[in-house]
């Protein structure tokens, strides 16, 4: 890539940001970001913890939408790779003396490496087969974390690794916020440039995209690696955030939650992860007491969304003011 090409790409990101900022979603994101910046002064320490977890979840969901929504590679292994990133980071920091901050990035690298064994089938197969292969792989990793007791701490999980920033939660919060925003912007930059255009073309017809001179396998591999690595970084952040990592973090329930968030928010719009994250995460906080029944609520929510907003909340043109006006005029 030449300097000129980079300059063009950056220009493109800037002009798209300006464009998107004027849309309904753009305005909502601006408000949400402002809220996030002032969260430490507005919220109680307990609430701040929840916001921090929400930010991390949004990053994980966005990285799944990047892979599943844009390329159409419907992987079920994302939560497992998120967990792999978490385990890798804290184990590297605790056992091998890697600096905790560096270990977060390395968690992403390791998650990327763990995505390689399934990249071949994911690139070549379609639809349900991708689902089956990735699901099987996720199960293998999940049982791996339970069985490899010496490395992972087994079913009770891994704990006792160094804290970030000496346990200062406000500094930790801003670190999480900055990293999440930076990685979201990085994915956004890719998606509004040629990379995203070709990804969308591949989702609709990989044959046609290929026949138009695009190296489809390379695009898909890049997308899969980037998405998986970012999931790994999110997992690493989460491990440092809650100071423990255990098998449930990469269980299929976690994957279903990510998927529900992505689909409810909207798979065709990158910002969908933000809406989906907030809505589903919000519900599950509120509904914490009903336990497993939450799955029923998500199921119902999924049905409503797929029926009435087939492109998710972010992809819908639902305008609260307009609806209110209509209702008022009746």
């Amino acid at each position: 890539m030449t300097v000129e090409a980079v300059r063009l790409a950056v220009d493109r990101v800037r002009s798209r940001l300006r464009e998107d900022a004027r849309t309904r979603n753009g305005k909502l994101f601006a408000a949400i970001t402002a809220l996030a910046v002032f969260a430490p002064v507005m919220f109680s320490p307990y609430r701040l913890e929840i916001v921090m977890q929400l930010l991390i979840v949004i990053l994980a969901v966005a990285s799944w939408v990047f892979v599943a929504g844009y390329f159409g590679m419907f992987t079920f292994a994302h939560a497992a790779l998120y967990g792999v990133g978490g385990y890798a980071a804290v184990i590297l920091a605790a056992e091998m003396g890697v600096h905790p901050l560096a270990s977060i990035l390395l968690g992403g690298v390791v998650a990327g490496l763990f995505s390689l064994p399934i990249s071949y089938p994911v690139l070549r197969l379609s639809g349900a087969y991708v689902g089956m292969v990735t699901l099987a792989y996720a199960e293998i990793i999940y049982y791996g974390t339970i069985i490899l007791r010496d490395v992972t701490g087994g079913p009770t999980g891994y704990t006792g690794f160094p804290q970030l920033f000496g346990g200062d939660r406000v500094v930790m919060y801003y670190f999480v916020l900055a990293l999440v925003v930076a990685l979201m912007l990085a994915m956004y930059a890719l998606l509004v440039n040629r990379f995203g255009l070709v990804a969308r073309a591949i989702r609709e017809s990989s044959d046609a995209a290929q026949m138009l001179g695009n190296n489809v396998p390379r695009y898909k591999l890049t997308g899969f690696l980037v998405g998986s690595s970012i999931a790994g970084v999110a997992g690493a952040l989460q491990a440092y955030n809650i100071l423990i990592i255990s098998p449930p973090m990469l269980e299929i329930d976690q994957m279903i939650e990510f998927m529900a968030m992505g689909i409810i928010g909207g798979l065709r719009t990158f910002g969908g992860a933000v809406f989906g994250g907030i809505i589903v995460f919000g519900f599950s906080e509120v509904l914490r007491d009903i336990g497993e029944l939450r799955l029923v609520v998500w199921g119902a929510l999924l049905i409503v969304v797929t029926l009435y907003f087939p492109d998710g909340i972010a992809g819908s043109s639902f305008d609260v003011r307009k609806r209110f006006q209509e209702w008022f005029d009746r």
């Binding site: 255009l197 609709e204 290929q210 026949m211 065709r268």
Partner: peptide
């Protein structure tokens, strides 16, 4: 050769069932 390589060499092709990128 792979389709994208063939395409680079100068063969273009349309499909029996149209494959426009419908959402674009």
């Amino acid at each position: 050769m792979k389709p994208y390589q063939v395409s680079k060499r100068g063969i273009g092709r349309t499909f029996q069932i149209s494959k426009p990128f419908g959402r674009m």
